[in-house]
Design a protein around this nucleic acid. Sequence first.
RNA 1: GCGUUCGUAGCUCAGCUGGAUAGAGCACUCGCCUUCUAAGCGAGCGGUCUCAGGUUCGAAUCCUGACGGACGUACCA
Length: 565
Amino acid sequence: MKLKEQLNILIAQALAKASIDTTPQSVSESTKPEFGDYQFNGIMPLAKPLGRNPREIAAEVAGHIDCTTLIEKVEIAGPGFINIHLRREACAKMAEDMLHSDRLGIEPGEKPCRIIVDYSGPNMAKEMHVGHLRSTIIGDTLARLAEFLGHEVIRQNHIGDWGTQFGMLIAYLEEQDISSGVDLRNLEQFYKDAKKRFDESEIFADKAREYVVKIQSGDTHCLGLWQKFIDISLGHCEEVYDKLSVTLTKNDVKAESFYNDMLPKVIEQLDNSGVLEVSQGAKCVFVDGSEIPLIIQKGDGGYLYATTDLAALWYRSGELRADRILYVVDARQGDHFKQVFSIARSSGLVKEDIKLEHIAFGTMMDKSGKPFKTRDGGTVKLIELLDEAVSRAKTSIKEHENKSPETIEELARIIGIGAVKYSDLSINRESNYIFDWDKMLSLDGNTSLYMQYGYARIMSILDKHEGEIEMKISAQSDTEAKLLTALLKFDDVLHKAFTDSTPHTVTGYLYELVTLFMRFYESSPILRDDVPHETRHSRLSLALLTSRVIRQGLDILGIEVVNRI
RNA sequence: GCGUUCGUAGCUCAGCUGGAUAGAGCACUCGCCUUCUAAGCGAGCGGUCUCAGGUUCGAAUCCUGACGGACGUACCA
């Protein structure tokens, strides 16, 4: 149901009939209702090369546009715009087709890609904090979106489980009496205690450093302790993923340590391809004249995260055979990824035609525009933030007396978690994100609760209606027609969100859709006795299709809906 | 210093592959519940798109520069 594509084909045919040889720009949605549903602005740029008056060209092209199927009529306006009015019956037919399809008429693409989405990536030394929220939410949505569009998605959770701090943690763990049950429920505290010990005792610090070497050289006992620690820490993460309804599982974990054996080979490969050079004692790669190199191996022989990232690229390209890799990582690492991608290509670590993308996002700020912290300046634990979202949602629920405690719990969870996710996804991911409880839990404006409320309103009608719905649509009023055309845009919107990796394209669309539905709802009675049979079923069909688009759209965003709110 | 990025209504944000009179929400003012969830809908108010040049038939959008903010910048990740 790619509406734009269909229109573009009709335009291209008309241009060909007018003997104009060009690759036309795409039609776009009309900026004003009086300009029709879509507009084609591609005539004006042709005026100069053709040496003709743009309005004349527009008239000629417009004359060739097929107005017997999808398009009702076209109009020429201004300096050479072609305004396109869609045929309502054709739109109604397409909407009916959507209703008859499990996938809302969205067919998997002809050439599905294998896409790796690298997201979340928590550090095992500490509990997940708000810094992991955006990557986790955005990455999960991109994975779900690609999957829905028929691509093969491989999720990768590149957890930090390898490095100097683990020596300290294992040494501290060893010091405790494990048999008596070490309290690792509060990982944050454990880390702080170990750090304190590290700073206070020279002997302990030395021991910690020894442990790093022991782990990395494969000492069984130390690896056992390390594994125990990682398991517990990963358990914390899974609790968060579960609460967030994020699709990551243990199977998606590919930790830093996984690449350990590959690191010397990466160095070798870089050396063989001739990009490696030694500078100030460290093995480096200088990317196209940049003064600052990417350091691959430290002077003391140690590896760095850049080395691991290169190994991961190698593995993902060679073993996993990815066509496209998305790194959903903080925007501050932009320079790092630019270098890593460039080196991976120039040294032949990845296939030539692979697409490597850093899906950057901005920092999470508090209401006053400062980085998001606790009152005393510490990091906010993710699990606590999510619990707060649920408890805030609970207090905002109205009509408590008509609902069972279980219903309220469930409702609060769906509203609270939905609000956290939606507010994050609804802004352009690259700008900094201002985290505001009141705004995200509001019903007004572009919020998840508004979408969920719209959905519940529809479900209420569908529940009250008895018998089958005859899926026959005839949009009579202006509000109905607007809702109808909005529904048809779903496919185009998802594809745009996919190619640009912009979830906020989806939220923006859903908001527009639900707004149009609310207007329709206010102005167009459905179940009232005086509504004619045909009208009722047409409106029921529109409502049903709207509910399905909302549900599917929110599902891609990882947000649940409820039938009653 | 260099680099990346951002600057649109009082606030939070859309719009940016150049197109017609720059859009939402909040806030503020006003109207709409005997009819499917008023947690809703409608109307009004609110703009030198930071500034200055340039390209163009046409610039919030592209280019250059200035100013302001955020971030990054050699062995942490």
